[in-house]
Simulated assay, not measured.
Amino acid sequence: MNDSKLSSRNFRSARQEAAKAAAEQQQLGEPYAGPDSSYRLAFADSEFLLSEDLRSIRLQLEYLKPEMVQREFGIDSTIVIFGSARILPPDAARAVCDAARTTGDEAAIKRAEMQLAMSHHYEQAQRFANMVTKASQRLDHNIVVVTGGGPGIMEAGNRGALEAGGPSVGLNIVLPHEQAPNPYITPELCFQFHYFAIRKMHFLMRSIALVCFPGGFGTLDELFEVMTLQQTGKVRKRPILLFGREFWTKLINFELLVGTGMIGADDLKLFHFVESAEEAWGVIEQHYGLVPNEPSGADKGRLAEDI
């Protein structure tokens, strides 16, 4: 008996149908092959898919593509690294500082010196991602670094994972100004989003921890969404680590929020301040009781499960 016949498809695949229909359409010629013709399969018609009424379908597709690819790669637990795209690697920051000093422009020198001071966060993000990836290789559970896919802290995270010999994910976003993916992301795991909401959902879906370095509006948006979801019980608790106590306490007066009753004292337990890659990994390790080469006691995928 021919088993392949028993299990063969009853219908041609969508890819086969689209190729066949496109070839037939070209043979028909005008007016059916013209750009204004509606004689196309709906799922192969980009003009139709991009129409205003199909926004809900595009939202679904933007959710499904990264979900299916990550599932195919066996990615079920991630650590997300947030932070500014403007933080430079130390060598680049040093070069900017040296160039500024030659100009004699005090304002430019001050800005460049601040960039140099902030560049240590790039080193820590790179080191932390490297530690996560190496630890994952020793653990009974696979943990993958995820970033927003751009430059700065995001680049540092993907770079650290690559240098440790592991994969990493980049969740890029289409912006008014050009944003190219950094060169350290695993190519098969580099995604591009139109919708911020779907992108932020993917940041959270598999995350077992979120590590937040200094950043601007985008970083704050991502951080506060996560804290709000945990505060309101929409997602289960997981470590939120804020790198650099001095930066964060100057930026946000958490005590004022407690003192004025805007948040409860227990809400301060939603996050931890950390100063180094080692300290950050130690918090995560302690939270989950991670022990190299020993089962964590959780089934595959449980680390990243939300309520």
Rank of each mutant, 00 (worst) to 15 (best):
D3H: 15
S8R: 11
R12M: 15
A14K: 14
R15I: 13
Q16F: 15
A19L: 13
A21C: 09
Q26A: 13
L28A: 09
G29L: 04
G29W: 02
Y32A: 14
S37V: 03
S37K: 06
S38I: 15
S38A: 14
F43K: 09
L49I: 14
S51F: 02
L64V: 15
V69M: 11
I75E: 04
S77Y: 03
S77L: 03
G83T: 02
L88I: 04
D91T: 09
D91R: 05
A92H: 11
A99Q: 12
A99R: 08
D105T: 08
K110F: 09
R111Y: 11
A112H: 01
E113D: 10
S119Q: 03
Q126P: 06
V132A: 00
V132S: 00
V132Q: 00
Q137H: 07
L139D: 06
V144T: 08
G148P: 03
G152I: 02
E155D: 10
G157C: 01
L162M: 11
E163P: 06
E163N: 04
V169R: 06
G170I: 03
I173D: 07
P176T: 01
E178D: 09
Q179N: 04
N182S: 04
P183T: 07
Y184E: 07
T186I: 07
T186K: 09
P187F: 09
P187D: 09
F203D: 05
L204C: 15
I208L: 03
I208T: 05
A209K: 00
P214F: 08
L220W: 11
E222F: 01
T228G: 08
Q231R: 10
G233H: 05
V235I: 15
R236E: 10
L242G: 04
G244M: 05
E246F: 06
F247I: 05
E255C: 08
T260A: 10
G261E: 03
G261L: 01
M262E: 12
M262K: 12
M262F: 15
I263F: 00
G264E: 11
A265P: 07
L268C: 07
F271L: 05
V274Q: 01
E275Q: 06
A277D: 00
V283N: 05
E285L: 02
E285D: 11
Q286P: 02
H287G: 05
P292Q: 03
N293F: 14
E294T: 13
K300N: 12
K300W: 14
E305K: 10
